[in-house]
């Protein structure tokens, strides 16, 4: 496949960025999108140019590092996949592909396609955990009865890899699907009940502080989420916040 790539290039956080066109040739349709980017970067390095900076790590769809806005969609045109799981067979020979970083005030560009997603980490630090005594006398997790339904729902929420596609796809750059998933995974389990009120209050407060937008319930986040996290998690977070605020 021969492709034209329109890629956002930005030297650093303070520089003014712009779209730059590149040509790549002989791309195998079996390559992943990131492998195609590797080919481009090899080309750029060989010609003495600065390679395109992009985030990646596991390349098997579980780490949440890769994050590109491809042809106007977070992680590209496929559903339920990350950028690293997107394959070139999804594109046509001769196609022009537009590649941009995830855009949000709370996700500032560091360089090219790399954005700073530490805002997600700070939200997690505000309450996305349970406090457990790990000094050697930890209770066996299986000794606490949990319904299969609740366990399944909690697991569904816990599959969120924090990639930020929800924020990128949302017209308001809202992080509510991410926070909803993190709140839900604990809210559904008995271990999460002790700190439930503080968790949701603190996480939502931190989310607001980071500058994420509000939720308009468009559902774009759910569609673009590589783990197909349900909008129900946002509804659950709303219920949890109302409950916690009434206490």
């Amino acid at each position: 496949m021969n492709l034209t790539l329109k890629i956002w290039r930005q030297k650093n956080a303070n520089a003014k960025g712009q779209m730059v066109d590149y040509k790549v040739t002989d791309i195998s349709e079996h390559m992943s999108f990131l492998e195609m980017m590797d080919v481009l970067n090899e080309q750029l390095v060989n010609s003495g140019d600065d390679p395109v900076a992009f985030d990646h790590d596991c390349r098997e769809g579980i780490c949440g590092m890769c994050a590109m806005y491809i042809n106007g969609q977070a992680h590209g045109p496929d559903r339920g996949v990350t950028t690293c799981q997107l394959h070139m067979r999804r594109f046509k020979d001769g196609e022009t592909i537009t590649i941009e970083p995830f855009r949000a005030v709370a996700f500032p560009v560091i360089k090219d396609l790399v954005v700073d997603r530490m805002s997600f980490e700070r939200i997690q630090q505000a309450g996305g955990y349970i406090s457990v005594n790990t000094s050697g006398n930890t209770q066996d997790a299986n000794s606490i009865p949990i319904s299969k339904h609740a366990a399944d729902k909690a697991m569904d929420a816990a599959t969120c890899i924090g990639c930020g596609a929800c924020v990128a796809a949302c017209k308001n750059s809202s992080a509510m699907l991410f926070v909803g998933a993190k709140v839900s995974q604990y809210a559904l389990l008995p271990q999460g009940q002790i700190e439930a009120a503080d968790r949701v209050l603190n996480m939502v407060a931190q989310m607001d502080l980071e500058g994420f937008g509000n939720c308009s319930n468009t559902g774009a986040c759910e569609i673009e989420c590589p783990k197909s996290i349900s909008l129900d998690t946002i509804a659950r977070m709303n219920r949890e916040l109302m409950k916690a605020s009434l206490k």
């Binding site: 969609q73 855009r103 949000a104 017209k171 559902g219 774009a220």
Partner: peptide, 29 residues
């Protein structure tokens, strides 16, 4: 809410296919 939401993304996408994941009604309230 609209002004807050607009200020949450200062740099717009050059190519954005919002119709692929949401309804016109939901985006244009």
């Amino acid at each position: 809410l609209e002004f807050k939401n607009l200020s949450s993304r200062k740099v717009k996408y050059i190519k954005n296919q919002s119709a692929a994941n949401s309804s016109w009604m939901s985006r244009n309230m």
